[in-house]
Amino acid sequence: MRIAGVALLVALAGLSTGCAATAVKPWDRDLLAKKQMRLIHQPMLNAVDDHVYFSKEGSTGGMDAGGGGCGCN
């Protein structure tokens, strides 16, 4: 856990400081506007995967605020 916390802090420091100085201009977001650049770029496949791993592994979690809902065997 401690390692994860430290890693997160480092990541956030990067997110919030140094990089901000060179803000990406609105007209420079052509690549970011592509479908494949969305962080969840294949939502349907992602949902299928969540369901599979939820029922086959002991942990779960992610971006969705949805609960469980499967008494999978």
């Binding site: 997160l8 990541a11 956030l12 990067g14 997110l15 919030s16 990089c19 060179t22 990406v24 420079d28 977001r29 052509d30 690549l31 970011l32 650049m37 962080l39 971006m63």
Partner: peptide, 13 residues
């Protein structure tokens, strides 16, 4: 939080 880092790079925590 998600953040645009560069023209080619976006990330989220």
């Amino acid at each position: 939080v998600s953040r645009i880092i560069t023209r080619r790079w976006i990330m989220a925590v």
